[in-house]
Design a binder for these strands. Structure first.
Lengths: 252, 252
DNA sequence: TTATTTTGTGCGATATATGAACAAATGTCA
DNA sequence: TGACATTTGTTCATATATCGCACAAAATAA
């Protein structure tokens, strides 16, 4: 791609949108400039553009995103057949298991939820389509990283912030790579409170007919009710069933 | 705002993202140009920028959005306290009612789902945060339109495509305005299969402490199980309970 | 008050959009 | 099949718009 095939004003604007998040619902021009490391004048123009288009509100001091911004992500969710395809199967799975079921894909070092069927809340985190978790310590993340060539998996781990979320969290690259090998061989991943104390989950890959892993699905359960040791016998058959039901639908 | 406070390259890029959707997961440059009514050269630059940043894939012919695009909508969902605040209450509500419960806000002529707790699927449509429905024929839509000044409500209806989705759908502006008046007076809206045959729903507004309606919550149920006439006695008390529980939390 | 931070603006340097021209691919019809 | 017409993608020159700096004004803090 040539230099001039890149619209930097657009790229800068997207960076400004991403500056909003978590504890940053209201951003002043200066704050947004600091977060994005862009010039204040540039950030100001981007924010005013967002406001002019109705993607943001401006009270003269702070900018906040409006729900219109959801149109952008929704363009993906409705444009990609995967979420709509998975949803009914997740509903069914979730009901049979009596636990939350989710589907996600890989984006860099994170997994991104693309569909979810929740039974009551077990996690402290509020997960919705678009939510992100670090791949290295999530059951679906391990399933999505497992099929990658080792060099690529290592590169992703190297870019990941391998944080010790709980005493159980595996943070050693070699250990994780070995775990990926096991996941590849056995076809599932189990997480025992590595992300959050009290939460276990089990995931399997969803492959298309070429055998490429395109997504992962999982079931999460409170460790208090379902010890990690029981996750496999309780939920793996259900997950395999869903996996098998989805296979013929993924012709691509 | 001055002319030069507007970054048109950014605005054009956002328009290109929105061109993706529904049956448009794969767009060629020419298709995207037609949909956005922008110059082919301009669209090409925007799409290549998206690809360069990892928001889109390019196979040399077609562009498709990647899950990274969800970061943009997620910036809103995680930045705005409302979805996270509502979610546990929706879970509770959904469980008590044994039906799906949702929350939405208004964006132009549409309602946008910002949180949802689903029991088994009753609708043919797959609703997730970010999903949109026309406001005029949705229970939450009526609740969100009701508090607006009549002139504003009429303006929105005028911009809406008042489609006869089912034989029950109200499409007459005057009739809808009269219904808004009733909703304002009685504090709830009921939809009896106006969006889709077989689906009833009931909604109430969520106000902040200044009395401004900031969102709506609803319960949807299959008409076969719960006739519209029973929606009120069955679910209105539960909705009012949730509404009351939320009131002190919306200090803003 | 002064000091500090934040926001708004003018301007030259630089980057982008435009529309036409061309090349390549695709489709159409005899 | 081959010749022609269309559509699509790409490139280029130039008119135009944006960027980022420097400074001024305003707001905020000390």
């Amino acid at each position: 791609m040539r230099e001039t095939d890149f619209v930097s004003g657009f790229a800068r604007g997207l960076k400004v949108i991403e500056a909003f998040g978590e504890t940053r619902q209201r951003l002043s021009i200066a704050e947004a400039a600091k977060l994005t490391e862009l010039d204040r004048a540039t950030v100001r123009r981007s924010l005013l553009t967002l406001a002019e288009l109705g993607y943001a509100d401006y009270d003269g001091k702070f900018f906040t995103l409006t729900p219109k911004i959801l149109r952008l992500g929704h363009a993906y969710l409705s444009a990609t057949p995967l979420p709509a395809l998975l949803q009914p199967h997740l509903d069914h799975l979730s009901e049979k298991a009596g636990q939350s079921a989710s589907a996600s894909v890989l984006d860099g070092t994170d997994i991104v939820y693309i569909a979810r069927a929740s039974q009551r809340r077990v996690m402290s985190i509020n997960l919705t389509p678009g939510s992100r978790l670090p791949a290295y310590c999530a059951s679906m993340g391990r399933v999505l990283l497992a099929p990658l060539p080792e060099s690529e998996a290592r590169a992703i781990l190297a870019r990941s912030e391998l944080k010790q979320n709980t005493p159980n969290t595996k943070t050693d690259s070699d250990e994780l790579i070995a775990e990926f090998r096991r996941v590849r061989a056995e076809g599932y991943a189990i997480i025992d409170q590595e992300l959050e104390i009290g939460l276990c989950s089990i995931a399997v890959p969803i492959d298309n007919d070429r055998g490429e892993t395109v997504a992962a699905i999982n079931i999460g359960a409170p460790a208090a009710l379902v010890p990690a040791a029981e996750m496999k016998e309780r939920y793996l058959p259900l997950l395999k069933e869903t996996q098998a039901a989805l296979r013929p639908l993924l012709r691509r």
